[in-house]
Design a protein around this nucleic acid. Structure first.
Lengths: 224, 224
DNA sequence: TAAATAGTGTCTCTTAGACAATATTAT
DNA sequence: ATAATATTGTCTAAGAGACACTATTTA
């Protein structure tokens, strides 16, 4: 018997769930929506929805992201697929989880095109328990994001196009949850060669004005 | 409208596909099955099958692995989920890809409990093109496996319980496709602290007998 | 004793981390 | 002047990589 010809029940559903991160108040936050209906009525959940028949998983994730926040063209990456048969009490629902990074100047203060209540929560202090297995999904997303920080400078995905190195450092500190040494941080960012100094600077209140940078490396990162 | 209540068509199917690696003839090989029916009749494919209603994705992957090779309790990890709507001409099939590492003493020489023809192929030289998007899945698996080698010593998952450091090095060389320095390799494996010397040694033909090792670190790897 | 395989140490260069003083602005 | 923020370099320790000889066995 060919493995592809084995049959299965017809009751699977596939969703995408998007862990949408932003930085607000120098803190890493996630967008959650409050469920208005059972199961888990009243609990907060990671936004998501069903994959439509003619769209790829990436397209479904981008569509959901747009519907929830209105943003496009942001960092979005597949995370992991969760398929425990008990994860949704209504039936078999397999969800492909994604995570997205949205800069605060593009993230709506209170998001959600759906009528459902939606708001940003500190990623480290979400209203427990979240619906379904969403606590596990969030934990996985945080782990991945922190992992990426150690060998990339992905933080600028959470900043406006022009940013200062102090802002970038604050983003990294917010995600890692620990202070970083300023000189070492700048050395590392410089070594990665992924940000480019602009000919502008800004001063925000008191203090010496800061050099502005933008994404875009000097050299093709690690070209051999 | 609550995101979870959005509806979708009923024609999704979810499969798991398992990229099963082994080492044969000091070469990294993958198990492929030849398709006996359309689509892609005659092409080789990564083994897989539908997820059953009451099993988790991991369980489905373990079951498929057992059915194809008879082995249990081997390294198995979720890889990525592929869901392009055109990937299967028969309809919407979303596949959660896994990869497994099977030691050659446990891997059947010619595997496949299904009647389908099955055999091992050199991972670097599979009969192109594979069915569906399986070339992309295999490429993703290879990338992940190589990535892991640079910061773990996962190679022993591809060896019998007792092995020599030379064997382990040959495994790493087979996966990376390049020779490694013997002294540096042993230094690194030692530093990882994940293998333990046994009180036995073996001699294989001519040459000095080799110390046997087994998996199991001296110290809890990187305990803080 | 020749051929085959196993085992071992040093030096260098790069990278990561600890660490403090000066520069520029607003008030 | 003081407060606030930005910017910059050195030293040390650890890790990565280049590199060659000795040890033990079989035939």
């Amino acid at each position: 018997m060919n493995p592809r010809s084995r049959s299965s029940s017809d009751h699977e559903r596939v969703t995408v769930d998007i862990v949408i991160f932003t930085i607000r108040d120098t803190e890493l936050q996630v967008l959650l929506v409050r469920r208005g209906i059972a199961p888990f009525e009243g609990n907060w959940a990671i936004p998501g929805g069903f994959v439509l028949p003619k769209e790829s998983l990436d397209e479904a994730a981008r569509r959901e992201l747009r519907e929830e926040t209105g943003v496009e063209d942001v960092f979005l990456e597949q995370l992991y697929t969760f398929g425990d048969p008990e994860r949704d009490p209504r039936g078999r629902v397999i969800t492909v989880a994604y995570y997205a990074l949205v800069s605060p100047d593009r993230a709506p203060p209170l998001a959600g095109s759906d009528a459902a209540e939606a708001r940003w929560w500190p990623a480290a202090h979400t209203p427990a328990p979240l619906a379904f297995d969403h606590d596990a999904i969030l934990a996985t997303a945080l782990e991945r994001l922190r992992g990426k920080l150690t060998y990339t400078a992905i933080g600028f995905e959470l900043l406006p196009k022009k940013f200062t190195l102090s802002q970038l450092q604050r983003v990294h500190e917010a995600i890692l949850g620990e202070p970083l040494d300023k000189r070492n941080f700048r050395k590392r960012v410089d070594a990665l060669g992924v940000v480019r100094p602009l000919k502008e600077s800004v001063n925000s209140g008191a203090g010496r004005p800061a050099q502005l940078f933008s994404f875009g490396g000097r050299k093709p990162a690690n070209a051999k």
